[in-house]
């Protein structure tokens, strides 16, 4: 069975800017995949190349085994893309937009599915409103709906929650999760790392057009981030512990791998006579992984 997405040695230049540099990436069917990276890393270019909006200079891109250039009809039918820009056609109502979009994909009489999407995205009451009358969040929902009219098995969302309120975020993710559970492959780009951490089972990080990290979310967290004990003390710290610790203001961060190491650490601090003013335990988080990967400390560790 072919992968949901297979990207092989894809490069793309815009003038002298190398937007994508020999990117290799494979997303399996049924995955919830995160594509992370700072602005300008090439995420949107990669998605655009996959969607046929941008033509790669070299390499190939496949959706469910169909080349996006040579076999574009099949590839596009299998792919649903939610663009990053908040775009809409001011001439039409929500329902008209969705019916027209269905037609572009060769689908007639799509009302039942359109109703279901509208319901799931909380758009039912706006179905007959003109696109111009909708708030930004509502327009964003319609963009998601438009990407789903043809029931694509592979769904790509390019920063779908940028500038979106909490309620929509929750509605959206609940819906996308259901689609994922129903077998749809999801690819997501976002700057909210917490979102990626909660949702994605695998993550790729892009930097300057190259994949600099690729692993399951759990592995990435384990490799690049640890639990840590954070303490605010009266300033002192036993030399033995200070060697591994980072100090930031009055706070010390002491990394540890397993919880049974916490007690001995605290004992050492007590034995040294240091006063503890505040204490918290930090979990490994993707933000730390992201920062460390982007600082290039782990370049070449692509697995």
């Amino acid at each position: 069975m072919s992968a949901a997405i297979r990207i092989t040695q894809v490069s793309k230049c815009f003038g002298s800017v190398r937007a994508l540099d020999q990117v290799d990436l494979e997303v399996q069917r049924g995955e919830f995949f995160g594509l992370l990276g700072p602005n300008g890393a090439g995420k949107t270019t990669l998605i655009s190349a996959l969607a046929g909006l941008v033509r790669a200079d070299s390499g190939s891109l496949n959706v469910m085994g169909h080349d996006v250039q040579l076999d574009y009809r099949a590839a596009r039918r299998l792919l649903g893309v939610v663009p990053q820009e908040l775009v809409f056609d001011p001439f039409f109502t929500v329902r008209e937009s969705l019916k027209i979009q269905s037609g572009y994909f060769g689908i007639r009489d799509n009302d039942e599915w359109i109703d279901e999407i509208l319901e799931n995205l909380g758009l039912t009451s706006k179905a007959n409103a003109n696109m111009r009358m909708l708030s930004g969040g509502m327009k964003r929902r319609v963009l998601v709906a438009q990407a789903l009219v043809h029931r694509p098995p592979v769904i790509v969302l390019d920063e779908p929650t940028a500038g979106v309120d909490v309620e929509l975020r929750q509605t959206l993710w609940a819906f996308i999760r259901r689609l994922n559970e129903a077998g749809h492959t999801i690819v997501l780009t976002t700057h909210y790392l917490e979102e990626a951490e909660n949702l994605c089972n695998r993550i790729a990080m892009l930097k300057a057009g190259r994949v600099v990290a690729l692993d399951t979310t759990a592995q990435l967290l384990r490799r690049f981030s640890t639990h840590c004990l954070r303490l605010r003390t009266d300033g002192a710290m036993p030399a033995e512990l200070a060697a591994d610790a980072a100090q930031n203001g009055g706070w010390w961060s002491l990394p540890f791998d397993a919880f049974d190491q916490v007690e001995p650490m605290l004992a050492k601090i007590r034995a040294a006579g240091c006063r503890i003013d505040d204490l918290e335990i930090g979990k490994p988080d993707l933000e730390e992984v992201f920062v460390r990967v982007m600082q290039g400390q782990h370049e070449g560790q692509v697995s």
Binding site: A51, G52, L53, Y72, R73, A74, R76, R77, L79, V81, P83, E85, V87, F88, D89, P90, S97, I100, Q101, Y104, F105, G106, Q146, H150
Partner: peptide, 17 residues
């Protein structure tokens, strides 16, 4: 208009030759 507003993508994403 479609290019300036960006909604040209709605026509470019589907399998229209």
């Amino acid at each position: 208009q479609s290019k300036v507003t960006g909604n040209i993508v709605f026509v470019l994403l589907p399998p229209i030759s």
